[in-house]
Every structure is written in structure tokens, then in C-alpha cells.
Design a binder for these strands. Sequence first.
DNA 1: TACGCCATTGTTATCGATAACAACACCACT
DNA 2: AGTGGTGTTGTTATCGATAACAATGGCGTA
Lengths: 338, 338
Amino acid sequence: MDTIRKPPTMADVARRTGVSPMTVSRAFKRDSSVSQETREAVLLAAEELGYVFDSTASNLRSQRTDFIAVTIPSINNANFADTVRALSDRVSERGLQILLGYTNYDVAEEERLIEQLLRRKPEAMVVTGGKHTPRARKLLANAGIPVIETWDLPEEPIGHVVGFSNALAVREMVNHFVSVGYRKIAFIGGDASRDTRGTDRRAGFIAALIHHGLDTSRLIAAGPPPISMREGANAMGQLLERFPDTDAVICVSDLSAFGALTECQRRGIAVPDRIAIGGFGDYEIGAICVPSLTTINAFASEIGAKTAELILDVLDGKLDQPGRVTIRPDLILRQTSR
Amino acid sequence: MDTIRKPPTMADVARRTGVSPMTVSRAFKRDSSVSQETREAVLLAAEELGYVFDSTASNLRSQRTDFIAVTIPSINNANFADTVRALSDRVSERGLQILLGYTNYDVAEEERLIEQLLRRKPEAMVVTGGKHTPRARKLLANAGIPVIETWDLPEEPIGHVVGFSNALAVREMVNHFVSVGYRKIAFIGGDASRDTRGTDRRAGFIAALIHHGLDTSRLIAAGPPPISMREGANAMGQLLERFPDTDAVICVSDLSAFGALTECQRRGIAVPDRIAIGGFGDYEIGAICVPSLTTINAFASEIGAKTAELILDVLDGKLDQPGRVTIRPDLILRQTSR
DNA sequence: TACGCCATTGTTATCGATAACAACACCACT
DNA sequence: AGTGGTGTTGTTATCGATAACAATGGCGTA
């Protein structure tokens, strides 16, 4: 009859191998000083016993968890997913694991999430964006671990930064649109208060129009983030009714831009001949759809990779002052605009 | 001058509040027996000291981590992201946190990942798919925690199952296509050995064609997974050259189906008049694109929600035998087919 | 031969919260 | 007054791995 037995510990493996627990512990580390022979014997005994290494005990004693905590606004967004993937790929080579949480584009939720993640004692904390509640800032600043803000260039960074200026990127698109002759340019984005990157992009849009002396009233608020394809399509419908003479529209992301494009297709409106469309983020869909989307490549994967490098450098003690990596977004001209 | 001081512990908070560490511990739990007065005093002292609860110690002593480990093939896939989000939303209400890893559609990588995740002592383990290496199966079976296989209906489940038959779902689409008159039907999917759900879908496709006495040679292998828009477009190009008289094509996902659609648009081939297209997964893009995509809704979010409910039931001791939740995918007819 | 270095292994105390048990005060009810 | 229950707090030992230090044996070199 099977009795419910407790799972084996290192002590059990040690007994079976005829060594001390400490030797078992060393055998499970990569580069520690155990003879090849002993290590193999230990690992064999462990496999036979069905031993599974217990990180919780290791974490407490060694005061290391090998977690990298990451917050992103949404798990369903290909841009953020790309960043996380690049980050994860890079740090997992070093045995570090991503601990992921999403904020739903809400700074209050972000605060809760940050507090929860910090309890797990991660080695570093990566947050998306540079706007946080005062308490979240305080928690991060006092956590005693490297903090990296991404996808933004905050004026007063908490620690390290790997990002770009959302406002500047959109401004460059506007400059291009104006240079090729568009004058009645609209913006489709989310409600102002929530998605801070979206708000920055809209601010850059308005600033650029003012700079060119153009009308800034063509702003369509597509609801609370995330603004995806459906919201983009609806917003384009509103735009066409409220400002029928619009000759170009810039959308907060490629997803909404694609939605807007399809709405034009449904209404038989020629893109780009009657209205041009610009997106943001260089999602796969923008390169594939017909006509393909003019957009801005923000180098999502590169943000993740650079963040990983920065974290590894800090953990290795190679960097003792806050790092600031600035990404330069790229305007990609395709078929939805001149 | 600031000396580097160690972060405060419960003992520090206890001293400051004038109570025992145990009382502090209770104050940080939700429903434990501390007076409202004491709790507030403790939390105030904690806040003043900048105390952050240390999960690593709690995890070891209580033998609970409140982690739910989850493996998905790719973090960049909206279907799996939907499942994880629904799962996460449900379990986080109960203080459980998702520990996510991705396998890159590779069972060997899955094995490594499962081993790594089990070391963290999760309360339950959710895996995507029902095909695993023998060692992975053994690790899961011996882990002593609830195991839930999803997005599949394995013949010999390890533990619980929340899924559907990929083969059957595609078979139903084929049946519909045949019933409305399509006869030369092709399939676009990934290379056979990798993505097991994709392979199941192709198997269902072939079985259905055989049942109807139709030609089964129109199979396009679009490379190793993930098969996304670009691969779908390339595969459609191949299909049109190798089997120009094809009258319908079923794609392994909506992403590849959309890519295929755009290739037709680039070549001026009428959809669905000259060739019909079917997708899989009911991604947002399929509902928005023009023409909209005929597809199969596999209820990704529902899989996550049902998985969460199952986990909570098991952890509450309300379920002592393996659960098997079968999802019934839905054929959604839209504009890319009759 | 003697010395010291290196590789390998062992011993002891500890990381910080909490399970299990004990104790105390206070109140209601008989 | 005595009894029992409830709500609140305290005490002690412990979860399982490992940091820090110690010890051993083998080998090369002077």
C-alpha cells in the first residue's frame, strides 16, 4: 500500500549517494567545485529518487531568486510581447527567469502589481512606461534593485532607461506627411488619461501641427485602451463623418491603423488617394496587408535585448551609474501614404 | 552619511509596533485573527519602515508559493495570450500568480521549461497541448500538484484536461466546404513534426477529405512554427503555382489565412469567388479584415477561465478525480467562403 | 623531505516567515 | 461564582538549501 511520502530533499539524495548535503548542493550548481565523478553520482541518485530541486529554500538562504520582474500594459500586444521575448531569451541564458505581470494600462493597477512583484524579491524590475503613482515610484526607488523604465524617455527616471520619445517619433511622421502635401491631418488614439504612451504620441502630433500652423481639431478618442482593430475601424467611421475633408490620419498603433484601413475599404474610400493612413509600431500586419501600412518602427525587440544587456551589466557590477539607452524610431514609408 | 542597511524584516516591524513577529505575520494575512486596531498599527509601522513582505521566506515555511505555472508555445500569439489572460484574471483574485514560460513549439524545450518551473514549487501546472517527452510526462505525473493539459484532448491525459479536438474542428470546416460545393481543397500549415496542434488539424483535414473521397495531395508545408502572416502569404503563392485549380484552402490559423488572403489580393485573385479561404482561432483580424475570414472559434478565453475554475476547485478540495472539460469549437462563416 | 598550493569535501549556523501549540482576557450564561 | 467559548496574542521549532569557514589529500617544486 502506498503511503503518502514527502518529496525527497537534498539530504535524501546525499544519503543515497554517500556524500554530504553540501556536496549535493554543489553538484546542482553549474561551475562549482565538485569532481565530475561525484556530480554524476549525485545526479543519478537524484533522478532515481525523483528529486526536484527546491528553489524556495535556495532563494531564502542565498537571498537570490533569479527572477526578473516585468510589467507590461497588456499581454495581448505584439509589441510588448516582442520586447518581453527578446528580454527573456537573453536573460534566460544566464539562468534568470521572467516574472511577468500586466497593468491593463492603469497606473493604480501598476502600483498593486509592482508591490506584489517586489515581494518575490526579483533581481531587477523592468516597467513599461515612465509614468507611475508616487507610491509606485517610492517602492521602486527603495527596492534596492536595478529598475529599468522602457518604451519611454522619462524626464526624471527612477533608475535606468531603455526607450524613445513617443512624441518625437510621431512628430517626424507629421513632418513627413506635411512635406509631401497633406494638410488636414487627424489623429486616432485612446482616451487621454489612460495609456500614457498614446497620450505622448498625441501630444507630439498636436505639437507638430502647431509648428506647421495647421488645424489641430481632428482628434478622435476611440475609448479606453487597448485601442485595437475594431476601435480603429469605429474611429475611422467617426472621423469620416465629422471631418469628411481629412486627407491623412495618424493612428496610435498599427492595429488601429489597420482597422481604419478596413473601414475605408468597406466604404469604398481610396487609400492613400483620398486619405492617407499612418500607424505606429511596425506590427507584422502592417507589412503584409494590402495596401501595406506606413508606420514607425520602435524596435520592440531591440528594447528587450538592450534592457537585458543593461540588467546583466548591472548585476555583473560593470555599470554603477544609471544607464540611458535611447532608441531611435524609424519612419517606414509604405503604400498607405505618399 | 548613509550606511548600507539591510532591508527591514517582520521582526523590525514587530519591534516598532510593540508586538510579536507572529502578530505582524497575521496582520499581513487577509482573514487571520488580529484586531483591526493592531492590524492598522502594524501596517502603519511597516509603511514607515519601508518594509516589503518577503515571499521567499513565507514560501519556504508555509510550503506554498501561490504560483500557477503555465507553458505556452509562444508569447506572441493572441490565442494563447487570451487563454493566459483569462486564467490569470481568475486566479489572481485568489492571490495566485501566473509563472509563464514559452516552449517555442518544441517538446524538448518544453521538458526543460517544465523542469525549471517545477523547481519553483507551483501550486498547479498548466501546459498547452497533450504531447510531451516521456521525461516531461514523468516529471508532471510525479510533481504532486494538479496538472492541466489544454488546447487538446489527449488520449492518455496526465491529469486534468480543458480542451477540444483540433482534428474534429477542422473536419467540420471541411464538411461544410464540401457541402457548399468546394472539391479541390488545400491545407496550409507548418512542418509536421513541430506544432502538434497544427499537425492534428492537418490530420483532421486529410481524414475528412478521405471520407468524402477527395484528393488529399494539396498540402503546403509553410516551414517550422510559428506560421504567421508572412508564411501564410508565401504558402499561398506556392499553392497557386503548384495547384492552380484549387477552389478552397484551409489554413492552420487566422494569421496564415490572412496572409494567404493578402497574397490573393496582390495577385488579383478573387476571394471567395475563385478561391475560398478558411482560418482557425477567430483572431480579431479575421473579423475586421475585408473580406472577413471564415474561421473556427476555439474559445481561447473560455479555455483559460475553465482552467482557472478547475484549478481553484482542486485546490479547494472540491474535486478529487481528474476533470475533463471539453470545449466545442464553433464554425464561423464569413466572407472568404460560401 | 618539506612546504605550500589547489581541488575536493565536510560542518555549522543561518536566511525570514509561520505552523502548531499555548495562554490570556473578556464576556455570556447557568 | 463557576464554566465554557471566543477573540486575540505570544512562544518555539521548523521549512530546505547554502554561505562561510574548516579540513583533507594529492601533487609539484625547492
